[in-house]
Design a protein around this nucleic acid. Structure first.
Length: 587
RNA sequence: GACUCCGUAGCUCAGCUGGAUAGAGCACCCGCCUUCUAAGCGGGCGGUCGCAGGUUCGAGUCCUGCCGGGGUCGCCA
């Protein structure tokens, strides 16, 4: 049980004994650490409801708590805050339990769920750019976090391989190499096994095609036509399209691998293509899908809507499908395959209206209830000027280049600081990779998911203060000092004995891990976990600066500190693993 | 125009169901390596919480209006 839950239960019983709602006993970490470790504000709420004096209510509750042996102090302050401070013995016994737990006090879901987590969402032929960063990083972290608390998670990359860009690629290639057999309607296969394009070709063709279609309506129409024919099953286009996907996927896989993002499913929009026709037929029969202006749609607007929700288009008037169609069919697919308790989408907030449409459509169609579909949207990534991020040259920054930049900077810092002395080239590169990636990930994850995001290179390569590398540094120092202790035969970690303020603060921080994981899971907000990780690293750093370990003469104090350091290091490493940014062995 | 997210220290941001003296990090200034990694630790400077009303014993937090910015608004994804 979480410490705050244990305390809330205790205080809640005191409220109940005085005839109040036990829920008023909610205890949380104190806002005023100078006054107490924990606080309960329930007396204020109780007094409000009962029209009584809050201090009088507080006095009665406090009086009932004074006998509890785990408190060293129970007091009433201000308008009616109940302040609680634990005895060092009570803290020590709870740290002992935490250290014995292989999850270091992490929260365990009371009702574990099975969920599909949809994140990543890269598109065929488009190299990943900074815009893909957040979905990958947040999604990967949520996947690990949910698993950590006991959920079953299927991570699906949901590859964009079925829309208009495919038709644009086809028509663009046709202009360059019109003699390829894929374009000859007289030929229906077999087609060559070798791809007519390389990854570099695709990355050149797509922007070319995209620009051409924007500038020339005839080209756009041509691409739409090709898309519709591809989706209708034209053999040459299908064969060509398969090459696009396999060539593209290899590159995409490599990039996610560098980011440390892995997926259980590599499904694409096209995988649900066979489900679309039967799905739409069924919905037409039910009267859910209707014809409108030549298209087939599901109307999702409600009378009490504040804004106008356009219908979800299943078939365009040219017969092609849209991403809303594949999104809906993907829900069908997920219900049929694993029938999860929930489906979660880690996608940019600019698509909120779209998901609202899809979720409503799913609900109306009876495919899957809306209240189990969640769009875990994240903020828009802007440049320093508040406008959509662009490089100095005005283009998009490739993810690959960003990662290289950060790792180079990490390597430089490693050299400057003299940390890399004695490391082989391989290890130095590995350290730079881990530290650089942590800088990148922590800079992203430590913002609340829903906040808009100022993309700032300088922030990503800053390794001081509240950063990923700071967490790594703390982790490495724990390892290092424990190694030194072992070499000096300083004894095994012993019973917890709290004497110094820094020890007490570290213990209290360690005990807050459970709440941090619970908050992060329930709100689907990784930054709660980041906040805790930083507080923990800070508490350890202060402890490290104030409390000697290896050469502390008092045996009991020394071995206790080794225990505290061990617990702190293990908890930090568990968190770094969940955040997807494991620390190097040394740095 | 409608809807939506947002406006907190010089900069980037926290602030949980309204509660005590609004917190971090960076930047700036001062101090700390003959002792376990100074990517660290301690101290200082810095805020009319966009503006104006309202609800409340109590508002950065809730309500209304205004100002300023981002985003979305049927056959792109």
């Amino acid at each position: 049980m979480l410490l705050t839950e244990e305390l809330s239960g205790l205080v809640g019983r005191a409220f109940a004994a005085e005839g109040y709602d036990a829920a008023l006993g909610a205890v949380r970490v104190s806002d005023r650490p100078d006054l107490a470790q924990f606080q309960c504000n329930g007396a204020l709420a109780a007094a409000k409801a009962a029209k009584a004096n809050p201090r009088a209510v507080g006095e009665k509750i406090a009086a009932r708590l004074k006998d509890e042996s785990m408190f060293s102090e129970v007091s009433l302050a201000g308008p009616g805050f109940i302040n609680l401070t634990l005895t060092d013995d009570a803290l020590a016994s709870r740290i002992a339990a935490l250290a014995a737990d292989h999850r270091l006090g992490g929260w365990t879901a009371t009702a574990p769920e099975t969920v599909v987590l949809d994140y990543g969402g890269p598109n065929v032929a488009k190299p990943l750019h900074v815009g893909h960063l957040r979905s990958a990083i947040i999604g990967e972290c949520l996947k690990r976090l949910f698993r950590f608390v006991g959920w079953t998670v299927y991570g699906d990359i949901h590859l964009g391989d079925w829309g208009l860009p495919m038709g644009q690629l086809i028509t663009e290639l046709k202009r360059e190499q019109p003699s390829l057999p894929y374009f000859d309607e007289a030929i229906s296969g077999p087609y060559p096994d070798a791809s007519p394009v390389t990854l570099e070709d695709l990355e050149r063709l797509y922007p070319q095609a995209s620009a051409a279609c924007k500038a020339d309506e005839a080209r756009a129409a041509e691409a739409r036509q090709a898309t519709a024919e591809l989706q209708a099953g034209r053999p040459g286009y299908r064969a060509l399209w398969k090459h696009f996907i396999s060539v593209s996927r290899a590159g995409i896989e490599r990039e996610y691998d560098d980011l440390g993002a892995t997926f259980d499913w590599w499904k694409g929009e096209a995988d649900v293509d066979p489900l679309i026709a039967p799905m739409v037929d069924k919905l037409r029969a039910k009267g859910v899908a209707v014809e409108d202006k030549g298209a087939v749609v599901i109307r999702v607007a409600r009378d009490d809507d504040k804004k106008e929700y356009p219908p979800l288009i299943l078939y365009k008037s040219d017969g092609g499908v849209m991403y809303g169609t594949t999104d809906l069919a993907t829900i069908v697919d997920r219900v049929e395959s694993v029938n999860p308790d929930r489906m979660l989408y880690v996608v940019d907030g600019r698509q909120r209206d779209h998901f609202e449409q899809v979720f409503r459509a799913s609900d109306i169609a009876g495919i899957y209830p809306k209240d189990r579909l969640e769009h875990l949207w994240f903020g828009t990534m802007n440049g320093k000027d508040g406008k959509p991020f662009k490089t100095r040259a005005g283009g998009v920054l490739k993810l690959r280049d960003l990662i290289d930049m950060v790792e180079e900077r990490a390597a430089e810092r490693l050299k400057e600081s003299g940390f890399a002395e004695g490391y082989g080239d391989d290890e130095a590169a590995e350290v730079a990779h881990r530290v650089g990636l942590a800088a990148l990930k922590f800079a992203d994850l430590s913002n609340p998911r829903t906040s808009d995001y100022i993309f700032d290179i300088d922030r990503f390569v800053a390794f001081e203060g509240k950063t990923g590398p700071y967490l790594h540094y703390a982790s490495v120092r724990v390892r290092s000092v424990l190694k030194k202790a072992e070499a000096a035969d300083a004894g095994a970690p012993g019973p917890i004995l709290i004497t110094e303020k820094e020890e007490r603060d570290l213990a209290l921080t360690l005990l807050q891990f459970g709440e941090a994981t619970k908050d992060a899971v329930e709100k689907r907000l990784p930054h709660y976990l980041c906040e805790h990780a930083f507080t923990l690293a800070q508490a350890f750093s202060k402890f490290y600066a104030a409390c000697r370990m290896v050469d502390e003469k008092d045996d009991a104090i020394r071995t206790s500190r080794l225990s505290l350091a061990t617990a702190a290091g293990r908890q930090l490493d568990v968190i770094l693993d969940v955040l997807g940014m494991p620390a190097p062995e040394q740095m």
